[in-house]
Design a binder for these strands. Structure first.
Ligand SMILES: [Mn+2]
Ligand SMILES: [Mn+2]
Ligand SMILES: [Mn+2]
Ligand SMILES: [Mn+2]
Lengths: 217, 217
DNA sequence: TTAATTTGTTAGAAGCATCTAACATTTTAA
DNA sequence: TTAAAATGTTAGATGCTTCTAACAAATTAA
């Protein structure tokens, strides 16, 4: 395990390279709120430690070692979030910031016990999969709510943003993980969608919100 | 709140200055496993921040501000330890190292919730008092087991050492907080004591162990 | 009460993570 | 296909925490 800073770099590289397998220095700098030269230095260091493969002017990739490290941190983050919600009864909108700190706690006892108390859970409070102790991740097929056609009923699987402001917004709309919703209307002009669920009156979400909600048909 | 390093200095200053109100640079250096000049630099910094009062070649004292900070960290440490024992069912011998990490978590929500779940507890798993949210500490009158006379029955209140090796030792002897024991014999030569409790056969403790156990008559 | 010992300080350097300013490369657009 | 824009690198500096080496003050013991 590296320093707290190294862990945060590795976690961000993992997140940002999900799609294409690599990240650019500038993306990473933006995500971590540091300047490009800071990223550049750190890539040299993580390169020397064989956590990333990195060549000047080329994209950054995690090595197998780096990926394993990333998954271990993500596991701890998501277990912590679920623990905070399920055992400590905090809201799903307030656990991310605490988990950002707890994910760096170094104690197998602590995390194995959490895992046990939660009965080896598969997903966190935001619907994101929790890597198992070997770094294996369950992979469902999910699409963004913004991509669902009118008339189709879907189940909310996950959210791709776990910041408080976004989740407060969903709370105010009464949306939650596991809920079934019908896409009643999709506006061509601005991408906004109107949903219904059995009990409630219609619900309008902007594209900005709909694209952050993962669903399965 | 200062850096993690500053927090650890403040906590150690508090612990070591309990008796006399001040600590020497060398004691602090020993406790924190750093060299004297490191302590010296940090004292200048904490002095500038009004956390300690410090003059060259003089003892170090916490200011009121520093004391408040120390008590806040100690509160978090002890709440964490009790949470780990009571809610997460870890052993009292394995929680200190985890609490050393958790005490630096910055989240009122997290700690207030722990406090609530534990029903506003007064003592940690090692019998040490937990400062309340205002830094107030309950103060019992306790004496070391090594100072108890033969023939006297006492109740174990606390241990002054929460390192695993010591608590493993107590576990192996079957001793725990709250237990009543009779001091059957005190050896003049080496200060060792022989105890009895109702159910068990006699128990011998060295002076080294007995002086780390706080009791009330 | 002087000398030896213990304790504490200063000076200067190092590693970590960050920054700004200047420069280099790569990509994109004219 | 060159010029402009975007992206990335290097050099050099800073703040933080630590260190060693050299020196200074305070304490203790002869
Ligand atoms: Mn999160
Ligand atoms: Mn999450
Ligand atoms: Mn402890
Ligand atoms: Mn304790």
């Amino acid at each position: 395990m590296g320093s707290l800073t190294e862990e945060n770099y590795i976690k961000s590289i993992y997140a940002l390279s999900q799609a294409t397998g690599e990240v650019f220095v500038s993306e990473l700098a933006k995500k971590l709120a540091v300047k490009l030269p800071s990223v550049n230095s750190m890539m040299k260091k993580l390169g020397a430690k064989k956590m990333v493969s990195y060549a000047p002017y080329k994209g950054i990739r995690l090595t197998e070692k780096g990926k394993k490290e990333a998954l271990s941190i993500i596991r701890k983050h998501r277990l912590a979030e679920l623990f905070l919600v399920k055992i400590m009864e905090l809201g799903w909108e307030e656990v991310h910031d605490i988990a950002e700190q707890l994910e760096h706690v170094d104690s197998n006892r602590f995390y194995n016990r959490i895992d046990e108390m939660l009965n080896y859970p598969k997903v966190d409070p935001h619907g994101e999969p929790i890597p198992d102790i070997n770094g294996k991740i369950f992979n469902d097929k999910r699409i963004p709510l913004s991509g669902v056609n009118e008339g189709v009923t879907v189940r909310i699987l996950a959210v791709s943003d776990d910041k408080k402001s976004f989740l407060d917004h969903l709370n105010s709309k009464g949306l939650f993980i596991g809920e079934k919703v019908l896409v009643k209307r999709k506006e061509v002009y601005d991408g906004s969608v109107v949903l219904t669920n059995k009990s409630k009156t219609d619900l309008m979400l902007t594209h900005q919100v709909a694209e952050r909600i993962w669903v399965e048909v």
